[in-house]
Amino acid sequence: MEWLIAIVIGVMTASGIYLVLRARTFPVVLGLTLLSYAVNVFLFVMGRLQIGQAAIIDPSAPGYTDPLPQALVLTAIVIAFGMTAFLIVLALKARSELGNDHVDGMSYVAEEEAAKQHKAEQS
């Protein structure tokens, strides 16, 4: 089971990072959302995997999981939402001010030229 969860975390991280490195704002925001899922789950499993041991005090409970990572992750989820919202609005603002949705604020034409120049430099 642990391997499975670790792979899930790894794949979410990899996809998130790949999207974060894209050139347009929307995929970057999606990537950050994925990355924050991965980080949240990663933090959560620092309390190890437990089944059926929720940290609700009850005399008949067989045991309790570690509540501290859960408390951390709970606020992290809400903060991640705030961050996503802020970023996506920033992307809208950038679109309105710059007229395009490139992360560097480049227009499509400028981007083409940069790519050409890049190729020329390489050759």
């Binding site: 391997w3 975390i9 790894g10």
Partner: peptide, 14 residues
């Protein structure tokens, strides 16, 4: 990055 995070998670969970 994904592989490092996966291994790190595994190292802790085990």
């Amino acid at each position: 990055a994904g592989v490092s995070v996966m291994l790190l998670a595994m190292a802790v969970m085990t």
